[in-house]
Simulated assay, not measured.
Amino acid sequence: MQYAHLYAGGREIAVGDTHDLIQRLRDDDGAFGWIDLTTEDASELGRLAELLNLHELAVEDALSDHERPKLARYSTHLLLTISSSSIDETGCVHLQRFTGFILPNLFISVREAGFPIDDLRQRLELNDDLIEHGVAFLLWGVLDVVVDDHVATLEQLDDHTEELSSALFVEKHDAMAVQQQAFRLRRSVVRMQHVTLPLREVVNTLLRRDLRVNVRGLEPYFSDVYDHTLHSSEWAETIRDQIGTVLETNVAIQGNRMNEIMKKVTSWAAIIAVPTAITGYFGQNLQFPGFGTEPAWWVSNGIIVVLGAGLFFLFRKYDWL
């Protein structure tokens, strides 16, 4: 699905298609535009690349599935590559790539279907007083929506981690389920780190004034995005440490539980050893006082009961049983 947006005179103006948009941009130096494509519009992107002299490597990156967040400079344009994030009920993080070709008066976006484009349009509409800043306005909107998505995703990851921590101390908790969920969450956090850590450098580069994008007048907005980016990357690191602590605690709890089991097994083995020892002694094939008599039978049974009961209550006293 393709969308073409023209901005002129501080407002958005309806246009027919991308060809009409480009023609009007050539006629009006004060206007700027936004062409929104999806990864399924590869043919349209190829046509625009020829028309606007977009670098072939940049076009290749826009259609690639494995590109880290970056801001690359080419002779005629800049290339922005970032990813938004979402999380499902199991704690798995999903990324949606977004690539932007940044020209002096045109912004071309190529996004995956799951990217929150409606949130972006709403963000731009709510801040239409910033339209006068041109393409930098669109760039800020994209970064702001993506960083807010990262913060929301990390907040849910944090909630999942807290739930997992609480589950550790539930009596007879499923240790294997905790282990699996912990590894699932850690994998999700690693994915978040892959998209949040490089984003800091992207925003920091935009704040420097050696690029073709003029962010003058939007510095407070980009600085706010940068602060949120720092927050999200540090938060991801904190959550990863928490998950590591959960894994270590789970192992420690299992070790403690095994120690408790071994204490009980050892206690019962000691109790069972008493009748074994007594019957072994009285079962000797030797003549001893009382051998083969009823009193000797009562004495042997009495010793078994007294010593067994004594050991039982002794172990109970010290919480071994």
Results as ranks from 00 to 15, higher is better:
Asp148Leu: 11
His94Asn: 08
Thr161Tyr: 03
Leu164Ile: 14
His160Leu: 10
Pro116Trp: 07
Glu163Phe: 12
Ile87Arg: 02
Pro104Lys: 15
Gln122Val: 10
Ser86Gly: 13
Phe107Ile: 09
Ala167Trp: 09
Lys172Ile: 05
Ile108Asp: 01
Glu155Cys: 04
Val110Gln: 01
Asp128Ser: 13
Leu106Arg: 04
Ser109Asp: 05
Leu126Ala: 08
Glu112Leu: 13
Arg121Thr: 06
Arg123Pro: 00
Leu126Gln: 13
Leu106Gly: 03
Glu89Trp: 15
Ser109Glu: 03
Val145Lys: 01
Val147Ala: 06
Asp148Met: 09
Leu157Glu: 05
Ser165Pro: 02
Arg97Glu: 08
Leu124Ile: 04
Leu130Ile: 01
Asp118Lys: 12
Glu132Gln: 10
Glu89Ser: 10
Phe107Glu: 00
Val93Ala: 10
Val146Ser: 07
Phe169Val: 12
Gly100Met: 04
Gln156Glu: 09
Asn127Trp: 01
His160Thr: 04
Ala113Gln: 08
Glu125Pro: 02
Gly134Asn: 06
Gly141Ser: 15
Phe107His: 02
Glu155Ile: 04
Asp148Trp: 06
Val147Thr: 12
Asp174Pro: 07
Glu89Arg: 11
Gly134His: 06
Glu171His: 08
Asp128Tyr: 00
Val145His: 01
Glu112Pro: 07
Gln96Trp: 11
Leu126Thr: 14
Asp118Arg: 13
Ile87Phe: 05
Ile117Phe: 07
Val147Gln: 03
Glu89Val: 15
Ser165Cys: 09
Val93Glu: 02
Gly141Ile: 01
Arg111Thr: 07
Leu120Cys: 14
Gly100Ala: 12
Leu124Val: 02
Leu168Arg: 10
Thr90Gly: 08
Glu155Trp: 05
Pro116Asn: 12
Gly141Asn: 04
Asp128Val: 03
Ile87Ala: 13
Arg111Glu: 06
Phe137Gly: 00
Ser86Ala: 09
Ser84Phe: 08
Cys92Asp: 10
Pro116Ala: 08
Glu162Asn: 07
Leu124Glu: 01
Val135Gln: 03
Asp118Tyr: 09
Asn105Asp: 09
Asp129Cys: 05
Ile108Cys: 06
Trp140Glu: 00
Val93Leu: 08
Arg111Tyr: 07
Leu154Asp: 05
Glu112Lys: 11
Asp88Val: 13
